[in-house]
């Protein structure tokens, strides 16, 4: 992706969500992916915060291309990423206080997610703002998708529910969206703990790679379960 021609939109989405999915294929940002995927609500919260960061970073970096001298390129990226994460952290603490408390240290740690620096360096610093924004959106959605898949599966297997503690995300005045699919006190500890995260991530990575390989050998259009958003915007 070192050329200056903007790749086709459909390609950007396909790369972000599937073939270059930051969480499941590039294996970037594994620490938050494993730590914050114990429930679906946590996964969505951190996923959206990361999505916003990579999107805004890509746009800012692309807009600053005229002053991106080689010597200061990396420091500029770091200033932008750290600044944006600080701003997002403040906004979360002000408007999503309970969720912010639950995610804890992982909000400031978005700074260290290599996905964001990687997109700034490999893509946004060489592309126009629109393409960079699209790439940030696609990559952010890819990371969010990985978090949601892992978080949903872990919560389902670990607690037998989906969207528990939904008030953290939608506010205390909202109805409780939690779906309890098993008897009340069901708990499968393994999946709530880090080992479960590793096992399920391994299975997801293997599954996605296997599907992508199979698709490359077939002539028919890919019919992978996560491909619909890519088709809609393409």
């Amino acid at each position: 992706m070192t050329d200056h021609h903007a790749p086709a939109r459909q390609n950007i989405w396909r790369r972000g969500l599937l073939t270059d999915n930051p969480g499941l294929i590039q294996l970037l940002g594994l620490c938050p992916l494993l730590a914050i995927s114990n429930t679906l609500v946590n996964a969505i919260g951190l996923g959206v915060a990361t999505l916003l960061t990579v999107l805004l970073t890509n746009i800012s970096v692309s807009l600053l291309r005229p002053v991106l001298y080689n010597a200061i390129r990396i420091p500029v990226f770091v200033i932008i990423i750290a600044g944006l994460v600080t701003i997002i952290e403040r906004l979360m603490e002000a408007w999503l206080f309970d969720l912010y408390q639950t995610l804890g240290i992982f909000v400031p740690l978005i700074v260290t997610n290599c996905l964001i620096l990687a997109r700034a360096e490999a893509f946004a610093s060489r592309q126009r703002p629109v393409a960079a924004a699209l790439d940030g959106l696609a990559m952010g959605c890819g990371f969010l998708l990985a978090l949601v898949l892992l978080g949903g599966t872990r919560e389902l297997l670990g607690y037998g529910s989906l969207l528990r503690d939904s008030q953290l995300l939608f506010g205390t005045t909202s109805p409780d969206f939690m779906l309890q699919l098993t008897p009340e006190h069901y708990q499968f500890l393994l999946f709530s703990l880090p080992p479960g995260a590793f096992i399920l991530l391994g299975l997801l990575v293997a599954g996605l790679r296997w599907r992508l390989q199979t698709d490359n050998n077939s002539i028919s259009k890919p019919e992978i379960l996560q491909s619909s958003p890519a088709e809609n915007t393409g």
Partner: peptide
């Protein structure tokens, strides 16, 4: 480059 870096840092500082 130094001026550019300073400006970016100052701008981000202002936003924060």
């Amino acid at each position: 480059p130094i001026a550019a870096l300073g400006l970016v840092a100052a701008g981000m500082g202002l936003l924060i």
